[in-house]
């Protein structure tokens, strides 16, 4: 007894959306802590926020929004059966992910060079609210950076499948889900950026 293999695009996307919610809630825990500690230490948070390098944050925001655009264009390109353009756009997205991580490395390096990192003597000597701010900053951007890495790897797998011909106009749910994940990574950054760089 053999029946045709089961294909359900709407189901595959529903599953992906549910998974994306779990990612949002994972970061939600950190945003919750941010809200509580901001209410408790408004002045320390404001002082610590002034230590942040806005230029790094702006650069990363531009990079991520561009990459999201490229990922969305890749989904359009695969529907037009344009494999070369799809691969080029996916390559562009992955390149943006790499540039984002380099930028993050430079930013963290600059902060650590000034003695700002969890459990550092400089933060221990300062007011406790600033130490909390920077611990949250490193945890949130670190977890987000890990997601950039995972998203980049996922898109590399998708690109390999496009190249093999496993993703084509008749079956591109992998690419769509990969792009959805990438947009989520972007979306979370869109919350991190104002909270840590702009509003304080």
């Amino acid at each position: 007894m053999s029946r045709p293999p089961h294909r359900d695009y709407a189901g595959a996307k529903l599953g992906m959306w549910l998974f994306l919610f779990t990612e949002l809630i994972l970061f939600g825990g950190l945003f919750l802590l941010y809200a509580v500690y901001l209410a408790r230490y408004p002045h320390e948070f404001a002082a610590a926020g002034r230590e942040m390098h806005l230029a790094f944050g702006v650069a990363n925001t531009v990079i991520l929004i561009t990459s999201s655009l490229l990922a969305a264009m890749a989904v359009t390109a695969v529907q037009r059966d344009d494999r070369r353009t799809t691969l080029a756009l996916l390559g562009g997205t992955i390149l943006c992910a790499a540039i984002f991580l380099v930028d993050k490395y430079l930013e963290w390096g600059a902060e650590i060079g000034r003695g700002i990192y969890p459990d550092s003597p400089r933060l221990a000597a300062g007011p406790p609210g600033e130490s909390v701010f920077f611990s949250l900053y490193y945890l949130t951007t670190g977890l987000h950076g890990l997601h950039v890495l995972i998203g980049g790897a996922l898109l590399a797998v998708v690109a390999a499948r496009v190249k093999r011909g496993a993703i084509h106009p008749g079956d591109y749910v992998w690419l769509e889900n990969g792009a959805l994940y990438w947009h989520l990574v972007d979306l979370i950054w869109i919350f991190i950026f104002p909270l840590y760089y702009l509003v304080l």
Binding site: L18, F21, T22, E23, I25, L26, F27, G28, G29, L30, L33, Y37, Y41, E44, P118, D119, A124, P127, P128, G129, E130, S131, V132, S135, L136, Y138, L139, L143
Partner: peptide, 30 residues
């Protein structure tokens, strides 16, 4: 789906507290 991710981040925070000394739950560090 909705509750488990919060456990995930909480457990990550314990590990960070132990390995990095983030002090997010330590009254001595705010």
């Amino acid at each position: 789906i909705l509750a488990t991710p919060i456990l995930g981040i909480t457990l990550v925070l314990i590990i960070a507290e132990r390995l990095l000394g983030t002090g997010l739950f330590d009254p001595g560090r705010g």
